[in-house]
Every structure is written in structure tokens, then in C-alpha cells.
Amino acid sequence: MEKSEIRKIGFKVFRFNPAVDASPKWKIYELEVDRSLTVLDALLRIKEEKDPSLAVRYSCRQAVCGSCGMMINGKQRLACFTRVLELNSKVVVVEPLNNYPIIRDLVTDFSDLFMKEKMIKPYIIRDDHEEMRSPTGMYLQNPEELLEYLQFADCIECGLCSSACPTYSTDNLFLTPMILNKAYRISADSRDTGLQYRLSVIDSEHGCWRCHFAAACSSVCPKGIDPAKSIQLLKKMITSAGIFKRMRKKEVQVALRPHVTGSTI
């Protein structure tokens, strides 16, 4: 059986408590790591054994919640999804994500993103209010229609893409790749007819047109989504809607399900 590799690695961690500290500082912790240890495991071990004051946000530990995004060796990554020894460095530098205000240490403030997400109405909007109020069945969607947006629906809203975005680093009003990706995912859904209600936000001075296709967002996405592509597709959708007035999709069939009763009110 292969002997597990164990090495001593230094973790240079950004520390800053705005309530107490005048300026940020770096603290170095040394740990013995094996090949299975992730950066999140290492940070939690630091918290347990060396410095309980370290602030870290995490939840699922398996790259589905998006909570543990941080800068690891200068790149936006999920700490739970990054194995220490795969970084191939004697010192691992860990900092909070770029472009967001710092709450404390490695924890950043996402309230700007959540506010922008509300602005784009990230839910299916339909005109058939009666069916929405008192559903009789479910809206049908074929595999081709699903594939139009499926890739972009995998987003776990970790914020790594917006952290990497060079536009967002200078323009704090920019909607950001994460939000624009969500806007495209909802608008491209065949069941949605609400693009017109989102246009005032998406087709604005700080909307999708401020994307210059640097594609830094796509290069850091841990889920393999291509937000840069979804933004360009969103531009195409808006232009089509503007020039060819192609806003309404074909009517979506409702598959009647007699056992579906009740009201949404």
C-alpha cells in the first residue's frame, strides 16, 4: 500500500478585524498535511488547535453551497474543493475574496450581490396569472429547451466569478457575472416570459454591456459554468428583443395533473 505523503506546509493567513484593528496583518501557521487535506480542513484545524479567533465561513464542505470562497495563492477558489498538496507550494497564502468588503478575516460581505440579485427578479414570471394562482398541472419543457439554460443553472452563487471580474473591481455598480448569469438562466427558460420586466436593470449603464469579455469569471468558476458566455448570450437576447421584437416565446403547454389542486394564494 502506498505510504501517505505528509509534509509541513506554512499557511500565510490574512487577518483583519475592522472593529479592532487599524490595518490588516498576516499570520503564519504551520501544519502537517497529507494529500487528502483541503485548505478548508487546514483552516479549521488552525481554528481548533492554534487560533480560535480566525473567522472562516463554510457550510457543506463539498462544493455545493458556495460559502467558502477565498483567494488561495492569488486565485479565487473554494477552500473545501482545493487540496493543499495540489497547490505545490511550501507556503499557502489565504486571503478574503477580492472586490467585496471584509467583515472579518476571510469572511466577506455579499449584501451588494444579494441586492442586485433582487433587482433582476430571479424567478419565473408568466402572464397566465390564473394558472399561476390556481395551478392545474405542470409546464412542459422538452430536452432542447432545457439545454438552453441547464449549464447556467448549476451556479451555486459562490461569488468567485464576481471577485475575479476586472469590471466589478473598478465599477461597483456593475451587476457582476454571477447576477447576469442568473438573469440569463431565468430569461432563457422557456417557461419564463418576464424579460421585459428585467430589461430596465440588465439593459442599463451598468448592466450586461459593461462586460468586456475578459472571461476571468469563466476561468475561476468551480462548477464549470461559463458566465462570460451567458452574458454574451444575454446581449444577443436583448438585441433580438430590441430589433426584432422577439420577446415572447412560443406558448408553453400545461400538462394537466388532476391530483394537483389548491391555490398559491
Binding site: 439593459d203 442599463s204 449603464e205 448592466g207 454591456w209 446581449k235 436583448i238 438585441t239 430590441g242 430589433i243
Partner: peptide
């Protein structure tokens, strides 16, 4: 003028 019109131009 909409932003999309400005950018199309």
C-alpha cells in the same frame, strides 16, 4: 437611448 442601442451603434 437604451444602453443596447448605444452599444449596437
Amino acid at each position: 437611448m437604451k444602453e443596447s442601442t448605444k452599444m449596437l451603434l
